[in-house]
Nucleic acid binder design. Structure first.
Lengths: 333, 333
DNA sequence: CTGAAAGCGCTTACAG
DNA sequence: CTGAAAGCGCTTACAG
C-alpha cells in the first residue's frame, strides 16, 4: 500500500480508510492528507478478495428473448436504478448474455465477481439459471419479474390497476366494443394485463369478444403492426383497443393508418408504459404511465436493504396513472 | 481452490484453467471433469489481483451534461459494443457519474477495478478527468469523441459526408434555401456537421443564410422544438432544414405542425442518426443513417487490439447513408 | 509433468 | 492507539 509514505503500518491505513475509531486523530489527519495528495483509491480486487464484498451490482437481462439497452421502458427504470445505486456507493456490472467464454451460469458468475446483489430485468422464456440465482443466497431484485427466493424481491406496476384504468377511460368515453393486443402467452406481464382487462370489462357489465384479443411475439412495434393487420384482416373491428405496451400501440396505429383508418374516429387506442415516443406521434398516444423513475429507485433501495440484511425480501407494486393525449378523443362524453 | 478434490496442486489446476501445455492429458481430463461437475469458476478478484487483468471494460458517459441509457443513438452503439465485447470474453462495468462516495476520478477508478480498457461516450462539457484517462496507459476508445492518447482511439461517423449527403439530396430535390438546427457551440459533433453543411452548400453554389442557422441546448427533442419556434418567430422560413439529430428534427416537426405548417410542402426536413422513432412519425423522417451496429463492433475490436498491444490507437470513421422517407417529398425532380 | 513457495493488496483478529 | 501476521484465492517463476 503506497500510503506507508506516512510512516505507519498498512493496518493503520486500512483502519483509517474504513473509518475505524481507534486511531489517533493526529496520525489520521496525516494519512488522510497523503491519501488526498496521491489520489489513492484502494484496489477493488484486493479488498473484494479479503472481504467478499465488491460494491458491485450485477445486472442481468433475463430470458432467451431478452430485453436490451434498446428497450425504452426498461432502460428508463435501469437509468433511475443506476443513479440511485450510484449514490448508495455501488457500480453496475452487466453480464453478457452470450455464453460466457469460460462457461458459467449466472450464479457462478455472481460468485466469480463477488457481486453484492443483482437486479434482473424480465424477458421472455426464462432460463433455469435465473431460478437458481433467485433461490441462492445472493440478494436479487426482479423488475417485472416475480422473484420468490428468501433473499429476493421485486418491483412492478400494479398490472390489474393498469387494465382497470384503461377500461374505465374507454367506458366513460362511451366505447363498448373493446379489443386487446398483447404479447405471447409466456409473458406473465401480458397475461396479467389481459386478465385484468377482461375482469374490468366484465366489471363494467360489457361483453368480452375473444375475436378482438390478439397477440404478437413480443412487446415491440412490429408485433403490434402484425397483430393489428390480423384484426383488420378478420374484419369487424372493435371501437377501442388496449395495447399492452406503447410500442405495440404504435405498431397498431401504423397498420390502421395504412388502411386509411382514423384514430380515434374509427378506432381509439390506449398504450402502456408512457415512453418518450408517445408525445411525438400523431395522434399523440393516450397511455398508462408506469412510474419508471420510482420503479428504479425502489428497486435500488430494496436491493440495498436486502444486501444489508435490513429486509426479508418481498415486493413493491407501484401505482400506474392514466395519461390522456389524443388517441381516444373525447366523444360521447 | 475447491478443485483439489482431484488430488493435484493448485498450480496444476491453475495451469489447466489457463490452458498451459505442460500438463499430462490424464490429469487434465480428470481435473476438467471435476470442474465441469462442480460448475467451478475461479474468483475474479483473486485472479485480477494476481494478474492485473480483470476482463472488465469500463464504460463512461463523459461530460457534465452526459448522455445516458435514454439516448437512442448511443444506446444502440453501446448495445452492439456490449455484444461484441461479450464474445471477446469481457463484461462491462458502468461507472456511476455521480461523485463516487470515496471520491476518485475516472483514472483512479479504472485502477481501482483494474479494468482492461474503457469506452467513453461523448457528452457535453467534457471534464478534465477524461483527458487524464485519455493520456494514461489505459486503453480507451471514444465514441464520437476524439481521443488523442497513445493508447487511445475513437470511432465516429464521417460528419462531413453526412452533411454533404444532406445538401446533395436537398439540392437534387430543388431546395435552395437551406436552414440548420444544431446543438450548442461546445458540441464538437454539431460543429462538424454545421461546418460540413456550410461547405457543401457553398460547394453547390448556393447561398448560406446565417439567419436560418439556429441552435438548441443539446440534441434532444425539446431543443429542436425551441429552435424551430425561434425560426418561426423570426419569420421568413427556409425551404429545407437539416437537423443535427433525429430528435432535434422531431422537435422541429412538432413546432411546425403546431403552426399549421406542412412537411415537406412548407418545409422539408432531414434528421441524422436514423433512430427507431423515424419510422413511426408522420411524416416518416428522412435521415442520415449512422451505422450504429458497426460503430459498436468497431469500437469493441479496436479496444481489444489496443488491450492486446496489437495496435497503436488511431481512429475509424464509418460511412453514413441517406435514408429517404417522407419528410422531403420528391418535388421539382 | 507436478508441486512448494512467494506474491498480488487488502482486512481482521490479536498482541503489545 | 499501533503494528505483525495470517488469510482471501489465484498466478508465476522455480525446483524437482
Amino acid at each position: 500500500m503506497i500510503a506507508e509514505m506516512a510512516g505507519v503500518s498498512v493496518s493503520t491505513v486500512s483502519k483509517i480508510m474504513n473509518n475505524y475509531s481507534d486511531v489517533s486523530e493526529k496520525t489520521k489527519q496525516r494519512v488522510l492528507e497523503i491519501i488526498e495528495q496521491t489520489g489513492y483509491l484502494p484496489s477493488n480486487s484486493a479488498k473484494t478478495l479479503a472481504t467478499k464484498k465488491s460494491s458491485l451490482i450485477g445486472v442481468i437481462f433475463a430470458g432467451e428473448l431478452n430485453v436490451d439497452f434498446t428497450h425504452p421502458f426498461f432502460v428508463e427504470v435501469l437509468n433511475s436504478f443506476k443513479k440511485q445505486m450510484g449514490v448508495l456507493g455501488y457500480d453496475l456490472i452487466f453480464f453478457s448474455n452470450e455464453k460466457f467464454i469460460s462457461g458459467g451460469d449466472y450464479f457462478s458468475r455472481c460468485l466469480h465477481f463477488h457481486v453484492d446483489g443483482c437486479v434482473i430485468i424480465s424477458g421472455q422464456k426464462m432460463e433455469n439459471a435465473i431460478q437458481e440465482l433467485d433461490m441462492s443466497s445472493i440478494p436479487c431484485i426482479g423488475v417485472d419479474l416475480e422473484l420468490k427466493g428468501k433473499k429476493s424481491g421485486y418491483v412492478m406496476s400494479d398490472n390489474f390497476k393498469i387494465s382497470s384504468k384503461v377500461v374505465e377511460h374507454f367506458y366513460l368515453l362511451g366505447y363498448r366494443e373493446l379489443g386487446f393486443i398483447g404479447s405471447t402467452a409466456d409473458s406473465n406481464i401480458s397475461n396479467k394485463r389481459e386478465e385484468g382487462y377482461i375482469k374490468a370489462i366484465e366489471g363494467f357489465g360489457m361483453a368480452v369478444n375473444e375475436k378482438w384479443f390478439v397477440h404478437g411475439d413480443d412487446f415491440f412495434e412490429p408485433s403490434g403492426y402484425a397483430a393489428m393487420q390480423q384484426l383488420i384482416q378478420a374484419g369487424n373491428l372493435p371501437k377501442a383497443i388496449f395495447a399492452a405496451s406503447d410500442l405495440l400501440a404504435l405498431g397498431a396505429i401504423r397498420a390502421l393508418k395504412e388502411h386509411g383508418l382514423r384514430i380515434p374516429e374509427d378506432v381509439a387506442i390506449i398504450g402502456c408504459d408512457d415512453i418518450e415516443a408517445c408525445k411525438y406521434t400523431s395522434p399523440k398516444l393516450t397511455t398508462i404511465r408506469q412510474n419508471k423513475e420510482r420503479l428504479g429507485v425502489l428497486a435500488a433501495h430494496m436491493l440495498f436493504d436486502l444486501i444489508n440484511n435490513q429486509s426479508e425480501g418481498g415486493s413493491f407494486v407501484v401505482e400506474p396513472a392514466l395519461v390522456i393525449r389524443e388517441s381516444c378523443g373525447s366523444q360521447n362524453t
